[in-house]
């Protein structure tokens, strides 16, 4: 598992464009909305949390469809599945690497983008916290979709499978931020977001590992 993680991190470091792409996409989408909507601070503050969350969700998905693809093509996926850790270790290493290279930069960048939407400081803090809890769940969901659609051509199916599953994360994540923006307590929403992460964590890796084993058959 550690060796797999080492390899995946090394590979991610060799291909910085793969990690940079989603971040740039995230920033661009979040910047385009204020330009399109116009300089109305009240409106932007209302839209802000939702827009940033949708942009983060799409950025995570965008980067994830080829999570296992290169490894399947070059044969290292089946070698890793045969290794002592098995498919579950592959899923853990890949998901963690994906979150570190894609999700974590989004968490860091989000407060900067929140400035454009005139979010209150507490709301900005809650936004970052919610993304910190929510993006790992998105990584897990994306890995599940990527494993299910592995070997298929076209990636629309991945979006169709994963997007509906992302809805709870999206609702609680942007809900927490909106609540903080309106001066309400964000605790309940954040707790539900944490629950969504935990449910993902205890169910999805096993399903993803099973899908991977099918993919290398």
């Amino acid at each position: 598992m550690l060796a797999l993680l080492h390899r995946d991190l090394l590979l991610a470091a060799r291909r910085p464009a793969d990690a940079l792409g989603p971040l740039v996409f995230f920033a661009l989408v979040a910047c385009l909305f204020p330009l399109a909507i116009g300089p109305d601070p009240a409106l932007l503050a209302v839209l802000g949390p939702g827009v940033i969350w949708v942009a983060a969700l799409l950025a995570m998905l965008l980067s994830q469809y080829r999570l296992f693809e290169a490894d399947l093509a070059d044969g290292s996926l089946e070698q890793a599945v045969l290794a002592p850790g098995g498919a579950l270790a592959v899923v853990a290493a890949k998901t963690l690497t994906h979150w570190l290279s894609t999700g974590a930069p989004l968490v860091v960048a989000a407060p900067l983008l929140a400035l454009q939407y005139d979010l209150a400081p507490t709301a900005t803090g809650v936004l970052a916290l919610a993304l910190l809890i929510g993006t790992p769940a998105l990584s897990l969901l994306g890995a599940f979709g990527a494993a299910l659609t592995l070997g298929l051509r076209g990636h629309v199916l991945l979006a169709l499978i994963v997007l509906p599953l992302c809805v709870p994360t999206l609702i609680f994540g942007s809900g927490a931020t909106t609540a903080a923006q309106q001066g309400l307590a964000a605790g309940p929403q954040l707790s539900l977001l944490g629950a969504a992460l935990l449910v993902s964590l205890v169910t999805l890796p096993w399903a993803t590992a099973a899908a991977l084993r099918l993919a290398v058959e």
């Binding site: 060796a3 797999l4 080492h6 390899r7 090394l10 590979l11 060799r14 291909r15 290169a70 490894d71 093509a73 070059d74 044969g75 290292s76 089946e78 070698q79 890793a80 045969l82 290794a83 002592p84 850790g85």
Partner: peptide, 28 residues
């Protein structure tokens, strides 16, 4: 068992030495 498929199971972005070292470590 050690299995060698049609594909070599190498990560193309890693050097020969890294590939061998990591593949062996992944194998335990």
């Amino acid at each position: 068992l050690a299995y060698l498929a049609h594909q070599n199971g190498l990560s193309l972005d890693l050097s020969a030495r890294e590939n061998l070292a990591l593949a062996t470590r992944i194998g335990g």
